[in-house]
Amino acid sequence: MKTRLRELRARERLNQTELAKLAKVSRQTISLIEREDYIPSLLIAKRLAKIFDEPIEEIFIFEEEEL
């Protein structure tokens, strides 16, 4: 899975801690997702989609063979 989280966060001029507060998670979780070390739950993905006003599939991009 690839993620555009870092790019979108930069677009909104948010640091990891600020985004974590908005998404009601820890900064560590945001860092893990950005490093593509962790696939978030649907709830967190939905919250992030809402924050960036983007569909989930535009933030988290899966390869065809992963689906």
């Binding site: 998670v25 820890s26 560590q28 979780t29 945001i30 860092s31 893990l32 997702i33 962790y38 978030p40 739950s41 967190i44």
Partner: peptide
């Protein structure tokens, strides 16, 4: 009190 990312770690 830990969230899912922290639990993963």
């Amino acid at each position: 009190a830990s969230d899912e990312g922290e639990r993963h770690i």
